[in-house]
Design a protein around this nucleic acid. Sequence first.
DNA 1: TTAAAAATTTAGTCATACCTAAATTTTTTT
DNA 2: AAAAAAATTTAGGTATGACTAAATTTTTAA
Lengths: 217, 217
Amino acid sequence: MQTLSTEDYLKAIYHVSQSSSGAVATTSIAKQIGAKPSSVTDMFKKLSDQNLVKYQKYQGVSLTNEGVKTALRIIRKHRLWESFLVSHLNFNWDEVHQVAEQLEHIQSEKLTNELERFLDYPTHDPHGDPIPNRALFMKTYNKILLTELPVNKEGVCVGVRDNSSGFLRYLDRRQIGIGTLLQVLHREDFDESLHIQAGKSTLMITKKTAENIYVKP
Amino acid sequence: MQTLSTEDYLKAIYHVSQSSSGAVATTSIAKQIGAKPSSVTDMFKKLSDQNLVKYQKYQGVSLTNEGVKTALRIIRKHRLWESFLVSHLNFNWDEVHQVAEQLEHIQSEKLTNELERFLDYPTHDPHGDPIPNRALFMKTYNKILLTELPVNKEGVCVGVRDNSSGFLRYLDRRQIGIGTLLQVLHREDFDESLHIQAGKSTLMITKKTAENIYVKP
DNA sequence: TTAAAAATTTAGTCATACCTAAATTTTTTT
DNA sequence: AAAAAAATTTAGGTATGACTAAATTTTTAA
Ligand SMILES: [Mn+2]
Ligand SMILES: [Mn+2]
Ligand SMILES: [Mn+2]
Ligand SMILES: [Mn+2]
């Protein structure tokens, strides 16, 4: 049985390892967790003792099979709770993260599975991220960044790369959300900004915004 | 902001102080929490430093106003979560305690208040215990033990004194639950057992059982 | 290919929340 | 009113999970 802290580390290692190749570096986890590198080293040793990561001094860590499973169990709970908060408790998608960060540590298989049933087996959370099922399997569809969508081709917004409250509220104001139909009308060479069609309105967004929005063509 | 541990202590102190008069003794909390008396003394000092209890060496503790409020906030969350687990997640009333013991520590006022709204402002939890409202006020009706119900007078089961899984499942088997109409048909002098009418069936229960059932006449 | 910079680990602390064993205080019994 | 028993506190210790400062290793740059 894991502590709250080891669970957060495993999750952080999983996330970092998804978005980069090779072993996960001490500093990257320190940034993610908000702790000093020396504290991360301590934890790497503990996780290694429990066979949840493979750790070589100065070379970073990689999750073992057991480590991946543990991480996915936490992610499953995190995303189910986020879904619940949005669908039944009037939370906006930018408010759920902090609370789900706590709820993901509640230990009760029955609770998790009943919550999943109550929500009718959702496949994606409010941010468009896939929810691992009971067997910890999640289907990911091939999504691309809005910057990579060819001009005039339509795509549906299926996710965001930046989950920060600031970005999510910005999208709210622009009326862009999961499911919004998007189309790049024009790509401005000068500053790489995009004129897009978002639902029924046309608007201009910067490159920085576009590269934080995932679409399915 | 409290830690998980201090919250459990405050709750324990509140519960013990409700069921006995005067200051709360070290040993009683040690039993409730499942820790050694020396650990309890340590915690009493910490709580006293935070002005959540009044503590006099060798004389036990009593909650301050702030301590009572903190305890009631935890109890409010505990009972709301228990209600949710039973009403929406197919938990039986004997299974909820252990999970609510964890959920009660989640920190989010919005979560608590939205959960309360979602459950339609319940006044009592699955065990018949009153749920403090947002202002931490709870209405308690005057209930008596089944042992004190006069023979042939009807009463409704409104609570239990023993919340253990064993007792609750025993009541399930006897088809006694919150809301069940009860009537004492005969009081056996010899062994103090009771013949009772419970809903549509008549059955015999021991004194020990009867003194763990609350009824409203 | 050495020197500088960056990353990482080690050594030594600290706070929380437990514990055991011993000392002290209070309560009960004789 | 002592003596014995029970309750409580103190002293000293452990594990977790964080920290700072210093040492070491790896990477990058001159
Ligand atoms: Mn977390
Ligand atoms: Mn999410
Ligand atoms: Mn608890
Ligand atoms: Mn209850």
